[in-house]
Amino acid sequence: MEQTMIDVKNLSKEYLVTNRRDSLKDTLKNIFKPEQTVVEAVKNLSFTVKPGETIGFIGQNGAGKTTTIKMLTGTLFPSSGTCKINGFDPTKRETNFKKSISVVMGNRSQLFPDLTPRDYLSLLQTMYEIDEREFTQTVDNLANTLKISNKLDTQTRKLSLGERMKIEFLAGVVTKPKVLFLDEPTIGLDVIAKRDLRKFLIKLNKDEQLTIFLTSHDMDDIAAICDHLIIINHGEIIWNGLKQDLLAKFGKSKYVTFTKRENFDATNLKAKIVTQDELTITIKVPAGEVENAVAALAANKQGSDYQISDLKLEDIIIELFAKENE
């Protein structure tokens, strides 16, 4: 039987939300008799993750990504269904479970602003009962990879956002977790910091066989790091499979972008319009028909400056959501 690192079965989460009203009368009424609505944040999710896999957990805002991560890490309890992480039930919050996971959230710092990163890391070493020598060596190696060796003794509040995030990553992996949960870890970072962190995670996954569960709105993060994608829409899974399979499924088409000419007429187009503005337009054309389509457009003097491109992961996911929401 194949080993499973994350096993999720029919996981659901419902919230009761109190409806707020505008008028004073209704506000007072709400104090004594609140009007509440049930919101289904996550609906019946089921999936499994093998050890060493890198999962991209994708969804629009409010799709239930963070709620799912919170249930998998034991912060929130599911309304129904079960999940097992490395064999542990997160709702029991056992010490060994907590020691086997790590959570890094891009919008929530876990560092102590008044102290240095080394102070924080030292606390983790004691908390996770890691051998001091081994710990120091790991910190040095990882800090070197992340290019923050000279920042470990600087007061945290004096670090840049990128440096702080790198420390968060370092703190996330230095405890030697089996699963690393990352929620929007590169939010607000510049391209160089993002590149460093992606390289760091790819190396870590290869070297340590660390299971990575990543949510991000930055599809470049997902494309670079993840090999398995789970896409959710309104709390339900709409894709669960390999990234390559998704790219192959939607990769049979190409985008043709061109500048509209004076006598451009959209009604003459046989291809699907992806985006357009006053000057340019992008259409989706089957890969085998690109040449003919461009030739026809040129012959009919519809456009100029033709650019042909493959669909990126981001384009595919946008199409997937559009299809689901139709």
Binding site: F112, D114, L115, D119, Y120, S122, L123, T126, M127, Q155
Partner: peptide, 19 residues
């Protein structure tokens, strides 16, 4: 217990770190 002693130290240091 070592963990909580470490938290005591961190908490103490935080106060002294902030003039």
């Amino acid at each position: 217990l070592r963990t909580y002693i470490a938290i005591v130290k961190v908490s103490l240091k935080s106060i002294f770190a902030n003039k």
